[in-house]
């Protein structure tokens, strides 16, 4: 069991989210980098979508109150066991001893979100079918809010130390299958309103190196750069939105929707980031440069299947016997 000494910038309990409740206005939620969540969970001996801690840029400080096993996925936020001067890297499951502290002291500067998995997942009530924290609704996770000092993270299987020492298989990528540091492009397909923008708008989206704005959060990535020409006519009659939708507000600066996006919106959607690139979107941090590359829907779906097959390989090598749920 872990007790929160300092919550870090934004640490929330997340799992696979609530993808089926958008008709009630509930965002899909869940991990912004589903791959990072799955990797941490598989290492800890859990199902890929089990509940884990999502930490953002500056991680927490946690006191180990009972010996347990943890595994990290996603970004390297500089985790170490303070008393033992022992660094903890994504990709290995570690034993933490009572009386020590797990701290995150800043890592490589790459990636925005890290995932901390405990044996069996983090024990919190399931609300509307999920352990995920819904910040907009103030429910799920721990009292519907980010962690704060004094909170306790209790594993679903306390005392299960079986995963200690396990490491990620060498033939499966540990991070998103792309590296933000190499300015790997986010792949998009044309959005439902692409044809309404003036000629050249989609090309301008694709031809610009956008900077991730500090006002980005779990609802979306706000991008800074030369404004795109607008679709005209102001706002649309509100329509459903999806994770990955690239909206263009009247100021011409695109917003890429992430896991906690509002379920409907009125800004025209010029493009939609593909599903296989969700892990990459979830790892972009303020100041990163992001570029977009156009692809076709059949290629996007092939990429989603390839990613799922890779995850299946990870499950085969590490995972529990349960069936893998896609995200």
């Amino acid at each position: 069991m872990l007790e929160v000494l300092d919550p870090g910038l934004l640490s929330t309990v997340q799992d696979g989210g609530r993808p089926d409740l958008a008709h009630l206005g509930v965002p899909p939620g869940g991990a912004c980098d589903p791959w990072g969540l799955a990797a941490a969970n598989l290492l800890a001996g859990n199902a890929p979508n089990a509940s884990a801690l999502e930490m953002t840029v500056a991680g927490p400080a946690l006191a180990v109150r009972a010996t347990c096993v943890v595994a990290l996925g996603g970004a390297d936020l500089g985790a170490r066991v303070k008393e033992e001067e022992r660094p903890l890297r994504p990709g290995t499951a570690y034993l933490l001893r009572t009386g020590t502290r797990l701290v995150f002291e800043g890592g490589s500067g790459r990636g925005a979100r890290a995932y901390l998995a405990l044996a069996g997942g983090i024990a919190v009530p399931r609300i509307l079918g999920s352990a995920s924290t819904c910040l907009a609704g103030g429910f799920g996770g721990i009292e519907g809010r980010p962690l704060r000092a004094g909170d306790r993270l209790v594993p679903e299987r306390p005392g299960d130390l079986a995963a200690a020492g396990r490491s990620w298989p060498a033939d499966v990528p540990l991070g998103p299958p792309h590296d933000p540091d190499l300015a790997t492009p986010v792949h998009v397909v044309p959005g439902p309103h692409a044809g309404r923008f003036p000629p050249g708008a989609l090309e301008a989206l694709l031809g610009t190196g956008w900077e991730v704005d500090p006002r980005s959060d779990r609802t979306g990535l706000r991008l800074a750069g030369p404004p795109l020409p607008g679709a005209g006519g102001g706002e649309l009659v509100s329509l459903p939105m999806t994770w990955g939708a690239v909206q263009v507000p009247p100021d011409g600066r695109p917003i890429v929707l992430l896991a906690d996006h509002p379920t409907v919106g009125g800004y025209p959607v010029i493009a939609v980031a593909i599903r296989a690139d969700r892990p990459l979107l979830g790892q972009l941090r303020p100041g990163d440069e992001v570029r977009f590359e156009l692809t076709a829907i059949d290629r996007a779906q092939a990429a989603a299947r390839a990613e799922q097959a890779l995850l299946g390989r990870g499950v085969e090598l590490l995972g529990p016997d349960e069936e893998v749920e896609p995200w």
């Binding site: 509100s238 459903p240 409907v264 829907i297 059949d298 779906q301 989603a304």
Partner: peptide, 22 residues
């Protein structure tokens, strides 16, 4: 098929791209 999302005058219909082509 995923859970449909109705709005004023449009409906979003998600589907599983791992199991069904566009």
């Amino acid at each position: 098929w995923g859970a449909p999302v109705p709005a004023y005058a449009s409906l979003l219909v998600p589907y599983d791209p791992l199991a069904m082509e566009q």
